[in-house]
Computed example of a mutant assay.
Amino acid sequence: MKQIVIISGKGGTGKTTVVSAMARFVPNKVLVDADVDAANLEILTSPELVSSEIYTEGEIAVISDEKCIKCDVCRQKCRFDAIVVDDDGNYSVDEHGCEGCRVCQLVCPADAIEMKIPEAGFVKKSKTPYGMLFHGELSAGRDNSGKMVTYLRELGAEEAQKNNLDWVIVDGAPGIGCQVIASLTGVDGAIVVSEPTLSAIHDLKRVVELADHFHLKI
């Protein structure tokens, strides 16, 4: 089994169009859409949903209104300014600012803070006319897209191994960020899609440098 990722330095170069063409002509493969912030391979592959699971990640703090004594210790100790106080003096946690470090829980004298695992999106398995497609949808404000990409790739690889398929074709995200790094790590090669504009060529050089860092065949 070989894993190949299709990436681009910027959006709008036709990367997903290339992947959809490969989906039609490459035999014995699994498809993975690793652009979880803006997944659109499903638009071009006519998928039928087989299964969907809630994707969770990390922990965030939650303050109990009933137990909170408004001592302000948690807010003072939070290094990420994730504890907010409303006009009525009620305390709550900004879930997008919370890093899950548990400091607030440890210092709370009233035992009013507990940790919960938040829902961060959905991971889907779909059947297409061209093979199975694994794709995800990251909830707004979630920033650990690389973890979802890694999970989707693991699911795709498991599907390929279970069914003795030859290829895992990954539609990566544009750019050089966390999603792209998670898409590139451990693959057998990369196809970089660009266009003949100054900005695209500039971004092409950056993504090629990133692929070179991982010693990938391009």
Rank of each mutant, 00 (worst) to 15 (best):
C68H: 01
I69C: 09
C71W: 03
D72Q: 13
D72T: 15
V73N: 02
R75K: 14
Q76H: 15
K77S: 14
C78H: 00
R79P: 01
F80T: 05
D81K: 08
V84D: 10
V85Y: 08
D86W: 09
D86T: 13
D87Y: 07
D87W: 05
N90A: 11
Y91N: 01
Y91R: 08
V93K: 04
V93G: 01
D94C: 10
D94F: 02
D94A: 12
E95K: 07
E95H: 11
H96Y: 11
C98W: 00
E99M: 07
E99T: 13
G100M: 08
C101Y: 10
C101H: 10
C104L: 08
Q105K: 07
Q105G: 14
L106F: 15
V107M: 07
A110F: 06
D111R: 10
A112T: 06
A112P: 06
I113S: 04
M115P: 07
K116S: 09
I117V: 09
P118Q: 14
P118V: 14
G121Q: 02
G121C: 13
F122G: 09
F122C: 03
F122R: 14
K127N: 12
T128D: 14
P129I: 15
M132P: 00
L133R: 03
F134M: 05
H135N: 09
H135A: 02
E137Q: 13
E137C: 13
L138E: 10
S139L: 09
S139D: 12
G141P: 08
R142E: 13
R142N: 11
D143P: 01
G146L: 04
G146Q: 01
V149A: 02
V149H: 09
L152N: 06
L152A: 05
R153I: 05
R153S: 03
G156C: 03
E158D: 14
E158F: 09
E159Y: 04
E159N: 02
E159T: 01
Q161S: 12
Q161Y: 14
N163R: 08
N164E: 04
D166T: 14
W167S: 00
V170Q: 04
D171Q: 01
D171T: 01
A173R: 03
A173Q: 07
P174F: 02
C178H: 05
C178L: 09
I181N: 06
A182L: 03
